[in-house]
Design a protein around this nucleic acid. Sequence first.
RNA 1: GGCGACGUACCCAAGUGGUAAGGGAGAGGUCUGCAAAACCUUUAUGCACCGGUUCGAAUCCGGUCGUCGCCUCCA
Length: 483
Amino acid sequence: MALQVYNTLHRRKELFTPQHEGFVGIYVCGPTVYGHSHLGHAKSYVSFDVIVRFLRSLGYRVLYVQNITDVGHLTDDADQGEDKLARQARIDRIPPMQLAETYTRSYFEDMDTLNVLRPDIVPRASGHITEQISMVQTLIGKGMAYVANGSVYFDVGSFPAYGKLSGRTVEDLNAGARVEIKEEKKHPADFALWKRADAGHIMRWPSPWGEGFPGWHIECSAMSMKYLGEGFDIHGGGLENQFPHHECEIAQSEGATGKPFVRYWLHNNMVTVNGKKMGKSLGNFITLKDAFAKWDPQVVRFFILQSHYRSTLDFSDEALDGARAGYEKLANTLRNLREKIAIAPDGGEGTGVDLDRRTAEFRNAMDDDFNTPQAIAVLFDVARELNQAFASEKNYGRPSLEAIDRWYALHAGSVLGIMTGDARGAGSSGPLVGPLVELLIAIRSDIRLQKLWALSDKIRDGLARIGIGLEDKKAGTTWKNIS
RNA sequence: GGCGACGUACCCAAGUGGUAAGGGAGAGGUCUGCAAAACCUUUAUGCACCGGUUCGAAUCCGGUCGUCGCCUCCA
């Protein structure tokens, strides 16, 4: 089976074939940096992180571009309201670019914590004003855009395919009561490519049409094509950006180049919290920094991947608790595996786990539009078989055990980006912790030989209170970090 | 009003024509000084509801109810 992806453009799963053999160009809409990142960002960027990781595991050279929107756009209608970045900067009493820098750092800090690999190129909108102006000029030259009162609008009437991504028509838009009629626009569905800056507008750049700032959609077109070429393989983003953002990107990009823009459009679904949509404008969003105080970041990542990227994901304490328990089961298995490896003989028999079969199952799951929940189920299947083998108390050979360790490192670690930490689990330990715990275990073993259970339990309970869990097994006592 | 998605056990969640993955929680058991971990057994004759197509439907078609999203910045 080969990789199939759900292409929003055609509303079906399609065989994935890159434009240039062996190479994949992918662009994902990045965050607007005027606040801390939230759970929605986590779902989106973890999802695309796994997509990129999987493509790389298939042998593709992937160029992953993700923008940072540091030019503020407006708080409500395309023509009303205040620039979001400018507003927050005013509230915080700092320059807008300082605000953007602060939250760009915050964003990557959170993504690093979630084990999301950095994109290969992270272009800032403010650093690509020239490219955006140039593209607007091309569109004006082609008669697809017009200047009105210092602003430039895209004429949707000049692009008959407008609506092909979202399945809307210009007539639908007319019917909707929410499209603001703006005097200077020829048609209500026309969208801004460049906006005239009013006197108080801080972020402004000179342009052929006077001082202003770029429209919301133009940055993604200009930057994606600059780094990936005029037509490229994958464009990803949140489902809510399908319309109008991505629709407008297609119109202006294909209008400017006359070539197909993106071959596969991938959209991830939204996050809800206790059943309700989480959105910036609703004010009910949970920032990642708050989430990490409550749940282990690795568990958050695991939880996200336990549902499909095109399904909505509801965050609730009960669901996260379930995910944590499942995650710990895998972590325990891996820890047990490494303890066995440390004492395994060079020869010895195999575990009987059919890794070839499980590899194929994992690959098939991921080939089917990145079905991470099914792929994770395969991780559990291997864990169960391995634990069954361990339950029989045989002495398995090191090569057989190490093969399973490598299997997890590849499939769980490299592809899904989970189970990559210390097998002892979360928590930070200073350099003295290990030797000290080993010493306590040795002393406690003597105590246990004397059957002084009360004293023995006092040591175990005391260690548990400071985050060290002891497990007494036939082969001896082991320890792990607990939270 | 227009467009779209979804509704699978107590919870999370795969499965799009061949007889319900996986995880959590619960119950019972094995092991253990106890605990933990792990293993075994068990938990949906049924996949919102009602019709239809079919030898066969959670999966296809029609209808009903419900939930959510987009149409306005948002991942």
